[in-house]
Design a binder for these strands. Sequence first.
DNA 1: TTAAATGCAAATTATTTGCTCTTCA
DNA 2: TGAAGAGCAAATAATTTGCATTTAA
Lengths: 158, 158
Amino acid sequence: MADPSQPHVPKRERARRLEAARALCRRKGVVLTAPRALVLEAAIGLGTHPTADEVHAAVHRKEPGIGRATVYRALEAFVAAGVFTKASHTGVAVRYDAIPARHHHLVCLRCDRIIDLFDGGLDGVAVPDVSGLGFSVTDIQVQLRGLCRACQTKEEEK
Amino acid sequence: MADPSQPHVPKRERARRLEAARALCRRKGVVLTAPRALVLEAAIGLGTHPTADEVHAAVHRKEPGIGRATVYRALEAFVAAGVFTKASHTGVAVRYDAIPARHHHLVCLRCDRIIDLFDGGLDGVAVPDVSGLGFSVTDIQVQLRGLCRACQTKEEEK
DNA sequence: TTAAATGCAAATTATTTGCTCTTCA
DNA sequence: TGAAGAGCAAATAATTTGCATTTAA
């Protein structure tokens, strides 16, 4: 089931990513148990931006014994270690934005708070031409991810 | 329950936003029924980036008869009309990103597909200084939102 | 040998849907 | 009058948690 809008990632590149991810796990002290190794491999192998359930399905095909919770927990462990990131999402609930004017967002990775950022410099970012990918852009937005003040304090306390 | 990390939005500004939103609804043919008017007011009044449930709670305080589904449907109607946007989230499931290298995303607003974009120009965007907001940035990412090729076709068919 | 990871099932949370009743053009 | 919106309850989907068991440093 190839995804035509997702440029194909060659096998060599995926192998490279996998090796880099393994190395990062080692460095960060994330133990690569057998189930986690499968999760890592599946998530990278899928190539797109898989959901936890898609990863679970792929893993489950190879090793039916592996449960959903294990996959969810492994993915979160990878995110915590900086091996993966979450794309276009924080928190479990949709957040609505009532400001029509162009603006940007500070996204706290710990508490999912979103803070508005009005910044002329960012507004000036030129929209690259992605028509070659068949994509039509209606909106451009910069996300700065990190920790809000409150969460920085909480992290220090740990 | 004021949110200290969210700069306070003065009453005058909120009133302006509310009026602009009402005008946009009129122009887009979104009928502002009584429940929808309350949703609009609550979502803008909350000032932050509320979840559907937070909006529902606020509306419910004023008018206990209004159900959750009505709030969800109203918010989606506003998004469809371009009155609101979704901040930092598309789709209902978290999507994981296995690419550690700096890159950006095309986000399809219709099918929630995420497409990687490697673009030197965007990589060069300078991170603005937001230490004044107490925020520490670890990552900057540009999101281009719009419609992927497949969804453009589907929209035309409608 | 002990803290961390797993597997399963149950619980929670977020969102959607079916259906009937109401409302507004 | 006829299509769109509302309200409620039930269904579905995504994610988390509790707990007994296994595994890796």
